[in-house]
Amino acid sequence: MSLIPQILRSLKNLPPFPMVAQRALMLVNKPELSIQELVEVIKFDPAITANVLRIANSAYFGLRREIHSLHQALLLLGTQELLKIIIASGATRLFANATPGYFSERHGLWRHSVSCGLMADLLARELTWAERATCFTAGLLHDIGKLVLSLFVDQKFAAIMEVVETQGKPFHRAEKEILGVDHAEIGGEMARIWDFPDRLRLVIRHHHLDCPESFSDNLVLLIHLADVLVLMFGQNLGREGLAYDGYPEVLKHFGLRERDLEKILLHFGCIWNDAQVFFGLIGSAHGLQCAHRG
């Protein structure tokens, strides 16, 4: 029996996407974005302002002096970097709930999402793309469908895993088979309801590369790759483990060789700890020791 009607009904109760983050999404990669425009977006949301200052002062950005005002943060970090922080701190609220269908750890999905955003950003840098903030945002939001689908996946977890194990299918396919819909499709719907920019919506919808249209935008391929690399890194795995199909063609498409990926994984390993502090996932840095960042 399909759960589609029930799942669609739950979309009706979707909370709003935080307003400030929504406005910031529209500004990502806008050419000649002025500092004043950006300050206008955030200044009326004190929680986000506080968050922005906290994050900007975290070790992740390695700024030498303390930042006290939004203006100062903008000057030191630049508009695109600040947009990333605004979107991430807006999204934190959405990701505050546990997603037991996918992660047994409470902040699992947030951790995965942040990791994917950072990985996408690193890949964009490696490929010398100008749109790093777009890549970060798409990585951060690619799995929003899991926010809604989690409860249904949790109910049917055993049945989904059985399909994974007996038929060797990746998890999202098994999800579709048992529930009638997968988290990428639901995420696409959410993006529509929330009025995300079209391109972002399509990344969310297609990040598992399950139809020919998926291959028409490089950003979709990049997010797919970031997702795979984050899983390979292994530190924030969900209940589905590594039941995932990576497409080697994507590597070829971007002209990435093994050594390039090793470098990216290494770099990711180095920023990972600071980044967790950055996004409020752990209290303070420990573990990896790396001085370089950027």
Binding site: L231, M232, G234, Y244, G246, Y247, P248, E258, E262, L265
Partner: peptide, 14 residues
């Protein structure tokens, strides 16, 4: 450890 996620290992062997 040493899992592979890309189907054909000749492409990527970390």
């Amino acid at each position: 450890g040493g899992s592979q996620l890309f189907g054909r290992p000749e492409h990527f062997q970390v």
